[in-house]
Design a protein around this nucleic acid. Sequence first.
DNA 1: AACCAGGACGTGA
DNA 2: TCACGTCATGGT
Length: 234
Amino acid sequence: MNQFLKVYKILMKEYGPQGWWPLLEHKGSNPTASGRITGYHPGDYSLPKDDHQIFEICVGAILTQNTAWPNVERALLNLRRLGALNPERILSLEEDKLRSAIRPAGYFNQKAKKLRTFSKFFLTLKGRIPLREELLSVWGVGRETADSILLYAYRQPIFVVDAYTRRVFSRLNLIMHDWDYDKIRKEFERNLPRNFETYQEFHALIVEHAKRFCKKTPECSGCPLRSLVKDESI
DNA sequence: AACCAGGACGTGA
DNA sequence: TCACGTCATGGT
């Protein structure tokens, strides 16, 4: 078994299924006592169910660019309140209303433009699965966002490389700092079973692990991956 | 109170 | 290509 699979097994045993991508609107996503939405669906890989949920994931993928998820969740709730979690309504909303709705997610000027641009693109698809190149040609959609959309909204076996992935796996000496995005992505895809369920779960597990232990300044005490680190002095 | 968060784009070298 | 500045809110 290769090192990537070992990491996957350890993280899965440690944290369990993560249930990504979180969705606001699906059966069972009721507000909790804290007023938050529990949109996670551990072990259920059948989502998204319809075009509406597909679009919601795309919007979340854009809003979460360099932004903490709770802020994105607020923005999504605002959009839902306006009935604007669909491309038609995002395009017909007044500029100021769109901006103020997504304000909690930060970069609201840029992201308002990105959501408009993407909404137009989404309508041209008419339900078809987009190509990676098509997504990358959309202004505001870079490699990670494109791959997040393909993996979580369209269930395509494309691995998502984010800042957490780079951090965790370079510390494990399994990737090098000078590797570009696609080299890292292909390295994951080469070492893992090529199904979208594994990719979805692994990416979510890496995020969880990075938040708990592999922070910017690492907290290695108690890290479940310590046995895999070559440099035992860490 | 600085630092960070599930990046992408525009610019100049 | 590539390094760097810009964009912005909210939690810790």
